[in-house]
Amino acid sequence: MSEITHRTVETNGIRLHVAEAGEGPLVLLLHGWPESWYSWRHQLPVLARAGYRVVAPDVRGYGRSDAPLEVEAYRMKALVADFVGLLDSLGERTAVVVGHDWGAAMAWDCAALHPERFRAVVGMSVPHLGRPPLPPTQLFRKAFGDQWFYILYFQEPGVAEAELEADIPRTMRTVLAGTAGFDVTSEVVRARKPGDEFLTGVPTPERLPSWLTEEDVAYFVGEFSRRGFRGGLNRYRNMDRDWAELPELATVKIEQPALFLVGEKDPGRAFAPVDLMKPLVPNLREVRVLPGAGHWIQQERADEVNAALLEFLASLPA
């Protein structure tokens, strides 16, 4: 990782830690939950060598970035403003924005709300679904009824934090390498009852998959041991607030060139249908499903993701 440098940048009234590499057109990489800039460790040097300036921040609430206390500090409007301000602080007028998981939702919204600043967009794992007809938590309650659902479990401040922070090494190992609590297709998760937790019934794997090393897990453990899980969980607690604050997402179209990547075995596919995205993203160049891959695709399938990103970036106007 000798090509990657680190610094702190001021934007939108907070400080973001960023990892960066290379020179050229800017590519902004946004991570999801529960991750950090480190999730892009395989992309930063490859894109940099291909002639791009690549910047991966710790999103507010994560790693070495600021973590405001208030729940509302993690609403989508604030996060998008962070990234617009980050472009300003980097001295860049435009960027290609790439996001995974919650970072994908942020990337899509950056492109939708600020097309003059984000000239193309890549989403991974989470499609752009616009604005639903009802606040998201109401939809989830209708869809899942009495069935346990992780986003509803995350809503009460302090509850999930206490569980996940009780044994951070177990949490990170289980979430990254085991059956995650967001896998609504798994029998373990489907068997949960009210009062169960995110990791209830999930064994912690002794052996890691080939794409994840003990050093990788240790890095994530260190980041969440420093910062805790509150900031990332607060993102889930703003979904209804976002619905109220951003009504334009119901109709605005993302006209920029776009790419969507998803793992064939990503559990999110069970409740985030890609077809709903297509009318809102008319210049969606491709939906690429990576055979056999799960949720953490830029880590699991780094070579394939890098190839897809390089192909997409090369297709864009200079």
Rank of each mutant, 00 (worst) to 15 (best):
D240P: 06
M277N: 07
V287K: 09
T251Q: 12
R241C: 01
R241A: 14
V289C: 11
L261N: 08
E311I: 02
E311S: 15
N306I: 06
Q299H: 12
G263A: 02
H295D: 12
W296Y: 15
V262H: 10
L276W: 05
P267S: 11
G292K: 10
F312V: 07
L249R: 15
D242R: 07
N238V: 07
V262M: 11
R301Y: 00
V305C: 13
F260D: 03
H295Y: 11
L313I: 04
E264I: 10
A244F: 14
H295R: 07
L310Y: 07
N238W: 03
K265S: 06
P282T: 08
G292M: 13
L246W: 01
A258L: 08
D275G: 01
A250W: 02
G268A: 10
A308D: 12
V305S: 02
D242I: 04
A272M: 15
V289S: 14
L246K: 03
L313M: 11
V262A: 13
E248C: 06
A270F: 04
A302V: 04
G263Y: 06
A307G: 05
L284Y: 02
M277Y: 00
V274D: 10
A302C: 05
L309A: 10
R237F: 08
P291T: 11
F260S: 05
I297G: 04
E245A: 13
P282K: 06
G268E: 00
K265V: 01
P291E: 11
N238M: 03
V287A: 12
N283Q: 14
A258F: 06
K253E: 15
R237P: 11
I254E: 04
E304D: 15
P267I: 11
D242W: 06
P257E: 11
D240R: 12
F271T: 13
V274H: 13
A258N: 01
P282W: 09
R288Y: 13
A302Y: 11
L259G: 07
G268Q: 06
V281Y: 05
D275A: 14
P279F: 06
K278P: 00
R301D: 09
L280G: 04
P282F: 13
E311G: 14
P247C: 08
I254Y: 01
V252S: 02
E286N: 04
E304N: 09
F271A: 05
E245M: 07
Q298I: 01
A308H: 04
F271V: 14
L249S: 01
R237S: 08
V305T: 14
R269D: 09
A302G: 02
Q298N: 14
V281N: 08
L310W: 09
F260V: 02
P267A: 03
L261P: 08
L290S: 01
N283G: 00
